[in-house]
Design a protein around this nucleic acid. Structure first.
Lengths: 224, 224
DNA sequence: GTCTATAATGAGATAGAC
DNA sequence: GTCTATCTCATTATAGAC
């Protein structure tokens, strides 16, 4: 808050603490929480292992800090997009394409922005949210994502006021399930399409995903 | 193949080898590959750790064997459902609902069948296929799933002969991304819906998912 | 096939000098 | 804030008796 470098994207003048966070983010995203060791992270950051515990405490604490460094900005992105979509619809329900885009677009575009830190964070998010409840490293995330998702749910209800409440939740569930895998960029579609589609082509994926889920929501949630 | 018990669902007369596989399947599914230790697995199976390596070799080998025990039956399920859908359509294109159901239904219904082994296997599948290419334990899986997915892709092309090839791949990609998370039963929808929807209610999820993706495919792939 | 005992390695975390 | 050296413990894997 006080003496941070103003531009943290470039590696010049980066403190050891920042290098540790960057390295942890990258290795957690690449190998997962358990397979990424403190030693690996220290080597990547070119610091002794003890400096990690000095700055952050336990490995769990380090993971939490990696999340907390980015998550407020991400949630702010989503709020901004949601507000813009609301303003553009002038009191009426938001077009479904705009709502889906506001929900999944910010993280995908951050990931595609060219900043390797955001790319790693996006992949880490996709990995962590895929785990089960008890996983301790889910906790720093769900406190942020469940509330913002509920805000989007409220708008979805305004678009489809006659749809069954459970059906609205299922629709959002499938959308979230899908985006989590997309953020990981696991390479499945690359293999299966023989290179025709690339899982790191996030701008294309965003367009395709918005269109497909919008069609699904329209077809499924207007009835009844 | 020769002296296996004919009914492996019940625990009576189960060999130590089978107990090890069951325990490994359960703990890999619950905690992931790295967090589930050989000691945990041995304790759960009530055998000494050394018996695991004696029967299976390394931890990697054990994981592979857990997969190979179930995957042929699962692929056979999917082939059977696909063949039945083809036969029912009498030479014409398969209805999209039937194709999606044939693709995602078998694993979901196995998971919901009441056999805890299949439930654990389904969750493990959802976890493992979510990882990235290099993850060594992905290898025993993609050799099975990519070919069967390509068979379904071929049928999808027959349903939408005028659709762009990439768009067909993206549609299947989103479907697969979604089903992987559903199989994990991570509890996300339970929290967000306040208990209105449960992530272990797979029969309901199957119906909702088939309907939503069918609407999405129809709206997205008929055009052009 | 099954078990006890143990080896060999790598893990997360700490002490204390500079 | 940073580093060297080390502690303690859990990990996978093996040796060899029954």
């Amino acid at each position: 808050m006080s003496s941070k470098p103003m531009i943290s994207t470039y590696h010049e003048q980066e403190t050891a603490r920042d290098r540790i966070l960057d390295a942890a983010e990258a290795l957690f995203a690449e190998h997962g929480y358990y397979a990424a060791t403190m030693r690996d992270i220290a080597r990547e950051a070119v610091v002794p292992t003890s400096l990690i515990t000095h700055h952050f405490g336990t490995k769990d604490d380090l993971f939490s800090e990696v999340i907390h460094r980015r998550v407020p900005e991400q949630i702010a992105d989503m709020h901004r997009e949601l507000s813009a979509a609301k303003a553009a619809s002038k009191g009426g329900p938001i077009p479904i394409e705009a709502l889906i885009h506001a929900y999944i677009g910010p993280m995908m575009l951050r990931s595609a922005s060219g900043d390797p830190g955001w790319k790693n964070y996006a992949r880490l998010l996709g990995l962590a949210m895929h785990g089960r409840q008890y996983a301790q490293f889910l906790k720093p995330m769900i406190g942020y994502y469940d509330p913002i998702t509920n805000e989007f749910m409220a708008e979805l209800r305004l678009i489809y006021p006659d749809a069954d409440a459970r059906r609205l939740h299922w629709a959002m569930y499938f959308l979230q399930a899908s985006i989590l895998h997309v953020l990981v960029e696991a390479g499945m579609v690359d293999r299966q399409s023989g290179g025709l589609c690339r899982s790191n082509d996030l701008p294309t994926i965003l367009d395709e995903m918005v269109a497909l889920f919008a069609a699904g929501f329209e077809g499924r949630l207007n009835a009844r």
